[in-house]
């Protein structure tokens, strides 16, 4: 039997890797993928807790996370396409028009 601690630790490691990617990479697509990594780290923790606490609510929450991730991917990729059409770049630091 694998201890719950290992699953939670795995989820935190994946979450931290996602944070590192989001902070360091400036390619917008990879920043989006880092967000997905963070969501997956949380999902792993939720499913593990759901299994070890014998409660299905964790898995229901994972459903909602997946639904929100799908919505976020659709909107985010539409924004990327609109941005690429206007600026022809994927580099996040080159889009600074909103900066005062």
């Amino acid at each position: 039997m694998v201890p719950l601690y290992w699953y939670l630790w795995l989820g935190s490691v994946v979450f931290a890797v996602g944070i590192f990617g989001f902070l360091t990479r400036r390619n917008i697509i990879i920043m989006f993928l880092s967000i997905e990594l963070m969501l997956n780290g949380v999902n792993i923790s939720l499913v593990a807790l759901s299994h070890y606490m014998q409660d299905l609510r964790g898995q229901i929450l994972v459903f909602f996370v997946i639904a929100v991730a799908a919505a976020e991917a659709a909107i985010g990729l539409a924004i990327i396409i609109a941005m690429f059409r206007n600026k022809a770049t994927l580099h996040a630091d080159e889009i600074a028009e909103m900066k005062g």
Binding site: A67, A70, A71, A74, L77, I81, A82
Partner: peptide, 17 residues
């Protein structure tokens, strides 16, 4: 509410792209 979020995402994606 999740279904509403998905609907908003569809409309937003079409509008943005």
């Amino acid at each position: 509410i999740a279904s509403l979020i998905l609907l908003v995402a569809i409309i937003g994606a079409v509008f943005l792209a």
